[in-house]
C-alpha cells in the first residue's frame, strides 16, 4: 500500500481551538486548559484512505498576532490548510477571511482549504450563523464543517474530506506534489532519466 505524506497546517485566530482540534484528532483527548501555542507544534497521524495510507504532517501554528509573520513557513508546501474560527466569535470569522486571502496570494497554488467552525457545542453563544459560513466556504470552493474538539464532533471528518480532495497520485508521482526540497529533487531527477 502506498504511503503519502501530506503536510497540513492549521491557521486562525488565537483561542479558536486549533491545538484542541489537532489534539482530538491525534490523541483523541481534550484539555480545556491548554496553553497558547508558541511558534508551532508538530504532530503526525497516519490514516487509511481507500488504497493509500495518508500520513498527515500537521503543523499547528500559533494564532497570536506576534507570530503572524511566521505563517508562510508553515503553509509553504502544504497540501492542505485548515482555517479555524470560533462560531461564538464574529471577529475570528473575519480573521479567517484574511487567511483565505493570504493563502490565495502567497500559498501553494493547489492547496486544499478546509474551514472549520469550532466550538459548535456552544450553540447558545453563537455569533456566526452556519449558513453564512457555509455560503462563504462554497464561494471559495472550500471544505466546510462545524466542529467541536471538546465533544469530538466532525474532527475526523475534516481530515477525511481533505483526503478526498487530494489529487489521486499515480505511482510515479507519488513522491512529487510536495514542496519539500528532497522530494522535488527526487522527482525531477526521475523525470530526466526516463
Amino acid at each position: 500500500m502506498a504511503l503519502r505524506e501530506l503536510k497540513v497546517c492549521l491557521l486562525g485566530d488565537t483561542g479558536v481551538g486549533k491545538s484542541s482540534i489537532v489534539c482530538r484528532f491525534v490523541e483523541d483527548s481534550f484539555d480545556p486548559n491548554i496553553n497558547p501555542t508558541i511558534g508551532a507544534s508538530f504532530m503526525t497521524k497516519t490514516v487509511q484512505y481507500q488504497n493509500e495510507m495518508h500520513k498527515f504532517l500537521i503543523w499547528d501554528t500559533a494564532g497570536q498576532e506576534r507570530f503572524r509573520a511566521l505563517a508562510p513557513m508553515y503553509y509553504r508546501g502544504s497540501a492542505a490548510a485548515i482555517i479555524v474560527y470560533d462560531i461564538t466569535k464574529e471577529d475570528s470569522f473575519q480573521t479567517l477571511k484574511n487567511w483565505v486571502k493570504e493563502l490565495r496570494q502567497h500559498g501553494p497554488p493547489n492547496i486544499v482549504v478546509a474551514i472549520a467552525g469550532n466550538k459548535c457545542d456552544l450553540l447558545d453563544s453563537r455569533e456566526v450563523p452556519e449558513k453564512d459560513a457555509k455560503d462563504y466556504a462554497d464561494s471559495i470552493h472550500a471544505i466546510f464543517v462545524e466542529t467541536s474538539a471538546k465533544n469530538a464532533i466532525n474532527i475526523n471528518e475534516v481530515f477525511v474530506e481533505i483526503s478526498k480532495r487530494i489529487p489521486v497520485a499515480d505511482s510515479a508521482a507519488a513522491t512529487s506534489g510536495k514542496s519539500f526540497k528532497l522530494g522535488r529533487q527526487v522527482s525531477e531527477s526521475r523525470r530526466t532519466c526516463c
Binding site: A40, F42, L57, W59, F67, M73, R76
Partner: peptide
Amino acid sequence: EAVCNEIDQWPNPSPGQTLNLPIVGVV
C-alpha cells in the same frame, strides 16, 4: 521564540535512533 519552542519538542538524541526533527515548517 518559535524556533526554540519547536526544538523543545524534539525527541532526545538517542544513539542508534532515527529521529524526525520538525523546524519551522520542515522536518
